[in-house]
């Protein structure tokens, strides 16, 4: 059930990328500026499709919104000591992929508080660390890893080139006029003649 009414009792149906739907309270949903801009005044006929995000991500996003419904004045960055048990559990339950997905969803839904909340966590993860430690946190390859990766890629590229060349050679040997379609036959013949002509003129 969806309704343009703004009372907090109203529930909205949200549709995820899997096509699943679930309820979210109007008060929680109104934290999303995207929702406010798109649906608040006109209402939604049927479930609201947020189909770029999976159910687990959207549920996590609205879990935060439901929790912070009464937190009217957002008090800015929180230090580790200020975090409640709920805050800690909220983050600890997420794996790396979901954390990124939640930030992306929050960014799309334009939920300022949640975006800030997640960004504070990122800042806490990075604060006080040296470069090497930061590289590990933001999973950037180190200079050595980059070098090793480049070597592997170069090896792969060289191997691929060899395979391609061999394949081309084999193809040329096994190529028979009968097997080729008419247009390709004409082109192949033309190419061969051109090559012959070129070799003749070079001599």
């Amino acid at each position: 059930m969806t309704s343009p009414a703004s009372s907090s009792e109203v529930k909205y149906l949200i549709e995820s990328s899997e096509g699943n739907t679930f309820d979210v309270s109007g008060a929680a949903l109104r934290q999303s500026n995207t929702f406010n801009a798109m649906f608040l005044n006109i209402g939604a006929d049927g479930p609201i499709p947020f189909t770029d995000y999976n159910e687990a991500t959207l549920k996590k996003v609205f879990e935060y919104c439901e929790h912070s419904v009464n937190e009217e004045n957002y008090s800015g960055p929180k230090h580790q000591d200020d975090l409640s048990k709920w805050d800690l559990n909220f983050f600890n339950e997420m794996d790396q992929k979901m954390f990124i997905d939640v930030i992306n969803a929050s960014n799309f839904l334009d939920i300022e508080r949640l975006t800030s909340y997640c960004c504070e966590r990122i800042a806490r993860m990075l604060r006080g660390k040296n470069t090497q430690e930061m590289i590990k946190v933001i999973t950037l390859p180190t200079a050595e890893e980059l070098e090793a990766k480049q070597k592997v890629e170069e090896k792969k590229a060289a191997a691929a080139k060899k395979v391609a060349e061999k394949a081309a050679e084999t193809a040329e040997k096994t190529e028979t006029l009968e097997e080729l379609p008419v247009q390709q036959l004409v082109q192949t013949t033309r190419n061969k003649l051109t090559r012959k002509y070129l070799s003749f003129s070079n001599e």
């Binding site: 975090l83 983050f91 954390f99 990124i100 990122i122 993860m125 590990k136 933001i138 999973t139």
Partner: peptide, 9 residues
């Protein structure tokens, strides 16, 4: 608070 590595990029 458990920090897991993530892709900042």
């Amino acid at each position: 608070e458990k920090f897991k590595p993530f892709h900042l990029v």
